[in-house]
Simulated assay, not measured.
Amino acid sequence: MSTELPPKFETVMIIDDNVIDLYITSRMITQNNFAKNVLLYTAAEEAMQYLQDNEDNIPLLPQVIFVDIYMPLMSGFEFLDAYDKLSPSLKKYAKAYIISSTIDNEDIARSINNKNVVSFHVKPITKEFLDRII
Rank of each mutant, 00 (worst) to 15 (best):
S111H: 07
E78T: 14
P59S: 02
I24Q: 13
D21K: 02
F79E: 00
T30W: 14
I112Q: 13
P124L: 04
L90F: 07
Y83K: 02
V38C: 05
F34K: 00
L60H: 04
T30F: 05
Y41C: 07
Q52Y: 13
V117S: 01
Y93Q: 09
T30L: 11
A82S: 15
L40W: 12
D17E: 05
Y23N: 09
A96C: 11
L60M: 06
L60G: 14
P124T: 03
N113A: 10
Y23W: 05
F79P: 00
K92T: 08
Y93I: 05
S111W: 02
I99D: 01
L22I: 07
D104E: 08
A44F: 04
Y93D: 05
L39K: 03
P124F: 11
N116L: 09
N114T: 07
I24N: 14
L73E: 06
V64Y: 00
I65P: 00
Q49P: 15
A43C: 10
K95D: 05
V122Q: 06
I108P: 02
K92G: 12
E106G: 12
Y93A: 06
F66E: 00
T102K: 04
A44G: 08
L22H: 10
V64K: 01
L90G: 02
D53R: 03
L60C: 09
T30H: 14
I24Y: 11
L39V: 03
L73I: 10
L22G: 04
A44N: 09
K92M: 12
I103T: 08
V19R: 05
F79Y: 10
A82W: 06
H121L: 08
V117T: 03
T25A: 06
L51M: 14
Y50M: 15
Y97M: 13
A44L: 05
F120L: 08
E55M: 06
Q31F: 09
Y70V: 14
N114P: 09
A47P: 02
N57M: 06
S26T: 04
V19M: 08
K85G: 15
F120T: 10
K36V: 11
